[in-house]
Design a protein around this nucleic acid. Structure first.
Lengths: 337, 337
DNA sequence: CTGTTAGCGCGTTCAT
DNA sequence: ATGAACGCGCTAACAG
């Protein structure tokens, strides 16, 4: 009964049953329905209903060159940021009748290559990229065939639209808030930069922000095996004013908070914290984690709409969409004096 | 330069350049490479490389009926459980040369219908379902064409393989642990059941577990606007032994913990907590949240492999894969006496 | 308004 | 071992 060998009902079947030509059926399911006479349209509709006919998008795409498929390349699908953006993309896709093929590379360059080949073979109409783009040649070649949009991270030498956070402004917001709350000794924790443009921008902005604020001291550390030692050292080294951590993304926040916790740190009396990216559990940790929330949903929606513009023939020069972050104040940056 | 109008290089181009017929090229990219002479194979390979030819999966699928596409219907893509399972599915897909089309319904029945139609139109070879399956007719019809596997939640009247947690055993583990740790007054918090089989099973198992443990009291409450009041009442109503919460999934844990936090509860001295599902922030909240972790990755992998079996012709009766949960003890269930 | 014809890119007989 | 011809399901061009 559930044997997947039953032949699919095709346009021919519908045409036969309705006693019309395939062309008429094609017109019925396409944009040209108004060209059909009332009588024929009804017969076709009836045949479609009784047969349960559904057009085959593959065949359709083969002929028209439009598959209604969008690809998304994600570096780390378990990162809540990626998920949130993807949710936005998916919503927008749905709204415009597109489906989304998600490819997770798990930060593996070889997987990226394989996925790119696969996506290409499926004739996707556009591609949303949230990876390091280490296969420049393939990407550029693909870009000659279809529009692409970068999310969060730039890819060098790939001239493509970009949508993401205004990192400079966001970091400035964070610095302002820390400064005004009385923190003077800041340790920024970032994931290894590794060529990721957004991380680099944030670290650079952090250094610049420290430089032009009098009495502020700033250092940068990376997540990894040594993080705990770095944090311990930072906590021990007093005499530079109230201390705070500035974590560059959700992953950095998680590992930093875990390490602080394991170090027996009282969250957040001993040390302040402001995080880039908002996660749903921030209110629950200690007195709550202050964060700069990214408009992830809008970022995803914009990425898709950007693609859609290009698909509709937009030939304008490469655009960049910089979204602002929203400060959410919680206990982890309570004012000090 | 990045104008998406450049014609794709096709099998014909390769054949022309290599001076052979399309059939030979087809043999080269297919399974019949050993039928080709060394000389011709080399010429074809060279042509493919210089032209950058990639076979068109759409056309291929159209002809052979194998698109190498798997669909996954997810009720809530922002639920970490779904993501974790999806990650497992994706890994398995990749390993076997399949690509994954993910469809998020946002718990909306109408979206489920639309997605089902879309997936079908793309000739996916199999479907993984993690939704309520409220469109039984469409699902059953689809099931006549392709294999399906249910994840986490059963769908009534849909005879299909199922992979998920052994809910009975998992809840028993939780109850045992609570009992042995000295808790006697338990409030289970679940998302509205709403026909979700896994939630129903967990609640039923909870009630049964309370019933056959002497001196234990158990109540069930749902997440929602009243949760806070329920929790306050529960906290106030003493005299039944040490209190603990048992949350039925990640979402329930998050909302319960938030409410406790806002009620000014000291986590977790005033009340114990054990959670079904493991999330990465559990160690950070209060003294840490004890949990029962699901083998989400394995569940995803198994779901795909199950599909693959069916695709390869497995005709055996419907199977059910019940995975065990793993208890992770943290401070939220510290022993009481 | 409607049907006929010719492919889209590819796999698969059949010949040779 | 290789090529010619046909068709997968559908759309687009042209006739009528």
């Amino acid at each position: 009964m559930s044997n997947p060998t039953r032949a699919r009902v095709t346009m021919n079947d519908v045409a036969d049953m309705a006693g019309v030509s395939k062309a008429s059926v094609s017109r019925f399911i396409g944009e040209d329905r108004q060209l059909l006479s009332e009588a024929i349209a009804r017969r076709i509709e009836h045949a479609i209903d009784t047969l349960g006919y559904r057009p085959n998008q593959m065949a359709r795409g083969l002929k028209r060159g439009r598959t209604r498929l969008i690809g998304m390349l994600v570096a780390d699908i378990r990162n809540p940021y990626s998920i949130a953006v993807m949710h936005g993309v998916e919503t927008a896709c749905r709204k415009h009748g597109y489906s989304l093929v998600v490819c997770n590379t798990d930060r593996d360059d070889e997987q990226e290559r394989l996925h790119l080949a696969a996506l290409r073979s499926y004739n996707i109409e556009g591609l949303i990229v949230n990876t390091l783009g280490h296969h420049l040649d393939e990407l550029r070649e693909l870009h000659t065939e279809l529009p692409m949009v970068l999310v969060d991270r730039k890819v060098d030498q790939l001239q493509s639209d970009l949508v993401g956070l205004n990192n400079i402004a966001a970091v400035e917001q964070a610095m302002d808030h820390l400064y005004q709350s009385g923190y003077r000794d800041i340790l920024m924790v970032t994931e290894p930069q590794d060529g990721t443009s957004s991380r680099i921008e944030r670290v650079d902005a952090f250094k610049a922000g420290v430089a032009h604020r009098s009495g502020m001291r700033g250092q940068v550390r990376e997540t990894g095996d040594n993080l705990r030692d770095h944090l311990r050292d930072f906590l021990a080294d007093s005499g530079h004013g109230h201390k705070a951590l500035f974590t560059g993304n959700g992953v950095a926040t998680l590992s930093s908070t875990r390490q602080l916790h394991e170090l027996g740190c009282h969250l957040f009396d001993d040390i302040g914290l402001i995080a880039l990216d908002e996660l749903d559990w921030y209110p629950l940790v200690g007195s709550g984690i202050t964060s700069l929330a990214q408009p992830t949903h809008d970022i995803g929606v914009t990425a898709f709409e950007c693609l859609l513009e290009r698909l509709r023939g937009d030939q304008e020069p490469v655009k960049t969409y910089d979204f602002p972050a929203q400060l959410i104040v919680r206990g982890s940056t309570r004012p000090r004096s």
